[in-house]
Amino acid sequence: MEELLTLKDLLLQGDIPSTLMIVEELEEMSSNDIIKTIRSYAVILLLHLIKQQAENRTTRSWEVYIRNSIREIQRENKRRQAGGYYLTREQLRETLEEAYLNAIDEASLEVEEGRYEVQELEKLVNGEETINRALDLILPAQSSYNN
């Protein structure tokens, strides 16, 4: 990674301000990767919650997708060494809201074998309720989820 070599050179030169800029860039890149991964799993989670709500039923495979997505989101969001979480509750909500658009698109292809257009499906499901349910499933039971 070119940034690490640049960082090493700047440290050896004693250029602390430039070094800090590179560190901030690396932090932002890492954060963007984490958000992207969480968003991908959020689409899967929301897709299956939408299907449950629209079809008023569930299947074992949907339940497995939901559980696996929750676990992966929790794993990606947890800071292993520093402790805590990468995304705050509000940032996680924003990520779910962004993912919802993709999830409802995908759900329109799957709910009742593609019977509904996106606009029709949006009328069948409560998007806010679905996002809230996803958030409740993802967040730890403790109310101390702050970052």
Results as ranks from 00 to 15, higher is better:
residue 118 V to K: 15
residue 66 I to M: 12
residue 83 G to K: 01
residue 76 E to C: 06
residue 96 L to V: 05
residue 12 L to I: 08
residue 56 N to V: 02
residue 55 E to A: 05
residue 44 I to E: 04
residue 122 E to N: 09
residue 77 N to Y: 12
residue 98 E to F: 11
residue 69 S to G: 07
residue 17 P to A: 12
residue 55 E to I: 06
residue 58 T to L: 09
residue 69 S to M: 06
residue 77 N to V: 03
residue 79 R to S: 12
residue 124 L to A: 10
residue 75 R to Q: 05
residue 45 L to F: 02
residue 133 R to V: 13
residue 80 R to G: 12
residue 144 S to F: 14
residue 119 Q to A: 10
residue 141 A to H: 01
residue 115 R to E: 07
residue 52 Q to A: 00
residue 128 E to A: 09
residue 27 E to M: 13
residue 8 K to A: 05
residue 142 Q to D: 13
residue 44 I to G: 00
residue 54 A to V: 03
residue 120 E to L: 03
residue 59 T to I: 06
residue 71 R to D: 06
residue 11 L to T: 04
residue 16 I to K: 09
residue 30 S to F: 08
residue 27 E to P: 04
residue 40 S to I: 00
residue 136 D to T: 13
residue 84 G to A: 06
residue 17 P to T: 09
residue 92 L to P: 15
residue 100 Y to I: 02
residue 88 T to V: 10
residue 13 Q to D: 13
residue 113 E to I: 09
residue 110 E to N: 02
residue 93 R to A: 08
residue 91 Q to W: 14
residue 143 S to V: 04
residue 110 E to D: 03
residue 4 L to V: 12
residue 105 D to N: 00
residue 124 L to D: 11
residue 18 S to M: 05
residue 89 R to Y: 11
residue 7 L to I: 14
residue 63 E to C: 01
residue 14 G to A: 14
residue 61 S to N: 08
residue 75 R to T: 05
